[in-house]
Design a protein around this nucleic acid. Structure first.
Lengths: 219, 219
DNA sequence: GTCTATAGAATGATAGAC
DNA sequence: GTCTATCATTCTATAGAC
C-alpha cells in the first residue's frame, strides 16, 4: 500500500500535536484506508493493521470508528481554512492579487493533502449528525471567505459585473474536484496547479461567465 | 424519503426498457439509498423496503448487491455519453458553438439526473475491478470527446493557445462537482446552469488560464 | 498500552413454502 | 415472483490477562 501513488500524502504532519505518535499513526492509516475503500468498507482491523497493531488497540486511543473519521474531517477542514486565512498580504493587496493568492493557496493545500482532502469531501455522509453540522459550519466559513474575496472585486470595479454566488461556486468546484483525480507523481506540483487555477479564477471574474446578451445582474 | 429535496430525480426513465417494472423500481430505490448513505451503508433490505418488497425479493432480479450498483453506474455513464454525442449540429457548428452546446448538455444532464450522477461519481470504488474497468473506458470516451472539442478550437485559432489538457479537465470538473451540491428545487434549472457553465467554458478557452508572462504552450 | 478472545448485532445471500 | 425463515459470515466494541 505504501507504493500506491494514489495514496502518497503528507498526512503525517496534519494532526494535533497534542496527540501521541500512536494515535497520529492510526489517523494516518485511517486516512489511507478511508481514501482507498471508503469509511464503511474499512474495518477497525484494517486501520490497526496499517500501524501493525492488533484489532482492539484502536479503542485505547479513540472511542469509536466514527470519531476517527470525525477527527480526520474536522482537522482537515480546520487546517485548510487556517491556511487560506493566513495568506500573506491579505489586507494590503488589491482584489485581483488577493483572489489570486487565496485560490492558489486553497488549490495548493488540497493538492498537497489530496488523500486526506478526499476523505474530507467523500465521507461526509458517514459522520454522525452532530459532527456533520460542525463540519458544515467550517465549510460555510470557507465559502464566505471566497465569496467575500470575489464580491470585493466586483464592488470596486476590479472585476466584471459577474454573478458572485455562481462564479464563486465554480471557483471552489475546481479545488474540490481535484481531490478526485490529483496524484503527486506525474501531475503538476501543488504550487503549479495552484498558479494555474488562480489564473483561471482571475479569467472568470475578469471576463465573467457572460456573452453578448447574457444577464450579468447579481441575483 | 420522497419529500427529501436532495433526492428528487428523474431516475425512473433512466433504465433499460427491456427491464420490467420491478427491477426498474429496485434500481431507482437503490439510487436513492446509495446517494443518501453510500453503497456500503445501504443494505439489501433498505433497497427492497423502498419498493415495499421483503428482503429476499431483490435476488430474483439481480444476482448481487454489487451488480445493482454496476447496472446503475454503467447505465448512467452510457446515458450521459450518448446525450452529449447526440448534441444537435455537431458537425456543422464552429468550435465555439460546438463546445458551448456540448458543455451545456453535459451540465444539463448531470443536473437533471444529479442523484444518479452522484452515485456514478461517488461509488466507483465499490465496483468489482472488472466492472470498474468497464466504466473507466466510458469515462475515457467522455474525456476524449471534450478534449477534442477544445483542441479543435485551439487548432483553428478560434480559441486562445491554452493548455488543452488542463483546461479540459477544469471544464469537466464543473459538471462533475455539481452533483455534490445541486438540488432541483431552489437552484437554477438544469438548462440555466448548463447555459451558465457553457459561457464559463467559452471564457476559459477564449481568454485562457494565462496572464502576462505565463506559459501557454500545450505541454 | 497492547494482547487474545469473544460477546452481540447486523448483513448478504439462500432454501423452501405458496 | 414474493414470502418467511435462517445460515454463515463479518464487524464493532468490550473484557480481562499481562
Amino acid at each position: 500500500m505504501a507504493d500506491n501513488p494514489w495514496l502518497s500524502d503528507h498526512s503525517a504532519d496534519l494532526w494535533d500535536e497534542a496527540l501521541g505518535d500512536v494515535p497520529r499513526g492510526l489517523l494516518s492509516s485511517a486516512v489511507r484506508c478511508f481514501a482507498s475503500n471508503g469509511f464503511h468498507a474499512t474495518t477497525t482491523r484494517d486501520i490497526c493493521q496499517g500501524v501493525e497493531l492488533t484489532p482492539g488497540a484502536l479503542y485505547v486511543h479513540f472511542p469509536s470508528k466514527e470519531l476517527v473519521l470525525f477527527e480526520i474531517i474536522r482537522t482537515g477542514h480546520e487546517r485548510a481554512l487556517t491556511y487560506i486565512r493566513s495568506t500573506p498580504d491579505l489586507t494590503t493587496a488589491n482584489p485581483a492579487d488577493r483572489l489570486r493568492a487565496i485560490v492558489a493557496r486553497h488549490v495548493e493545500w488540497h493538492a498537497r493533502h489530496h488523500v486526506a482532502a478526499r476523505v474530507c469531501q467523500y465521507e461526509l455522509a458517514a459522520l454522525a449528525p452532530q459532527h456533520y453540522d460542525e463540519v458544515l459550519e467550517l465549510r460555510h466559513q470557507t465559502n464566505r471567505f471566497f465569496r467575500d474575496a470575489v464580491a470585493r472585486g466586483v464592488a470596486d470595479g476590479s472585476f466584471a459585473q459577474i454573478d458572485v454566488k455562481r462564479v464563486t461556486r465554480a471557483i471552489l468546484s475546481l479545488s474540490i474536484d481535484l481531490v478526485r483525480w490529483y496524484q503527486l507523481e506525474g501531475s503538476d506540483s501543488p504550487e503549479q496547479l495552484g498558479e494555474f487555477y488562480a489564473d483561471l479564477a482571475l479569467t472568470l471574474v475578469t471576463h465573467g461567465g457572460t456573452r453578448p446578451g447574457a444577464r450579468t445582474d447579481n441575483r
